[in-house]
């Protein structure tokens, strides 16, 4: 993978924005509380959470003393280092096979599309894949996933609309065991994290996989929309409590949104970002690279 691939291109828009703001800020060349406030705002305008932005600024304050604070390059590098360190606090594990990957998230973040891309990604690396159409709630969700299964050339297990998603998972896992499939990818219905009943349904699916397929590694990924704001943190927190998340897929980075909230997720919840969605095509999924992300940021 090119070090500065699509992710970089996608983030370039962000980059221009942040650097130009930094330049403006340095042009004013002033110190004191106003300066720190503005520095903090630059991060917040990239959807970094207020709390994380404050932490980062505190760190900058500690390290940049006196004259150094007027040095644009110094502060930029300092910020970059702090952000990258934070992102790398949560390492991405090496995937071991056979495995089950379950995607969870609120409505409309792009779970089904991401599954199509993931199927393609694993298929390309020579793995066999089966999809479980676990979104039995949204109208035509299974149809949508079937189209992706066709495109990626992988199998799909689906039931009728309105049926128990845990039963779909059960069947997909059984099928994977029988056919020695490397990767099972489970789709789930979008649910707002505040709906306790739907979150309980997710725990049930979780238990089915753990009970029926203990020999497989089980990864739970939260799909987050890059256009989301500060609520992303709440989402991650609650989903993590329910299914113990292993990672994040950040979608829709091809827009103008920055997805800065991932810094808080890595730093505070210790959940790494695995992949980034950078377009609508099947190939538009890139392994997340902290350096690249931060480099694109500034």
């Amino acid at each position: 993978m090119a070090l500065f691939g699509k992710l970089f291109a996608a983030l370039k828009k962000t980059k221009e924005n942040v650097s130009s703001k930094l330049r403006l800020l340095f042009a004013k060349n002033k110190l004191g509380d106003d300066f720190y406030d503005e520095l903090e705002e630059i991060l917040i305008s990239a959807d970094v959470s207020v709390r994380t932005a404050e932490d980062v600024i505190d760190q900058v304050k500690e390290e940049a003393i006196g004259e150094k604070l007027k040095d644009q390059q110094f502060v930029t590098d300092l910020l970059k280092d702090i952000l990258q360190d934070t992102l790398e606090e949560a390492p991405i594990p090496e995937i071991s096979y056979p495995c089950v990957i379950m995607l969870v998230g609120v409505n409309g973040v792009g779970k089904t599309t991401t599954i199509g891309k993931l199927a393609h990604y694993f298929k390309r690396t020579g793995k066999s894949v089966v999809l479980a159409a676990g979104d039995t709630f949204r109208a035509a969700a299974a149809d949508q996933l079937s189209v992706w299964a066709d495109r990626a050339g992988v199998r799909i297990v689906r039931h009728e609309e309105g049926s128990d998603p845990s039963a779909v998972v059960f069947d997909a896992v059984s099928s994977a065991k029988a056919r020695k499939t490397d990767v099972v990818i489970v789709d789930t219905a979008g649910r707002l994290h505040v709906k306790a009943n739907l979150m309980a349904e997710l725990s049930k699916m979780n238990r089915v996989v753990e009970r029926e397929y203990p020999e497989a590694t089980f990864y739970k990924l939260l799909v987050l929309d890059a256009t989301t704001g500060q609520n992303a943190f709440n989402q991650a927190q609650v989903f993590d409590e329910t299914v113990d998340l292993d990672g994040i897929v950040l979608t829709k980075l091809d827009g103008t949104a920055k997805g800065g909230f991932v810094v808080s997720l890595c730093g505070e919840l210790n959940i790494p970002v695995w992949f980034a969605g950078v377009g609508e095509k099947m190939e538009d999924l890139e392994p997340f690279d902290a350096e690249e992300f931060v480099e694109g940021f500034f």
Partner: peptide
């Protein structure tokens, strides 16, 4: 739930 990008959109 949209963040800062809402203005651009």
């Amino acid at each position: 739930m949209t963040g800062q990008d809402a203005v651009n959109v």
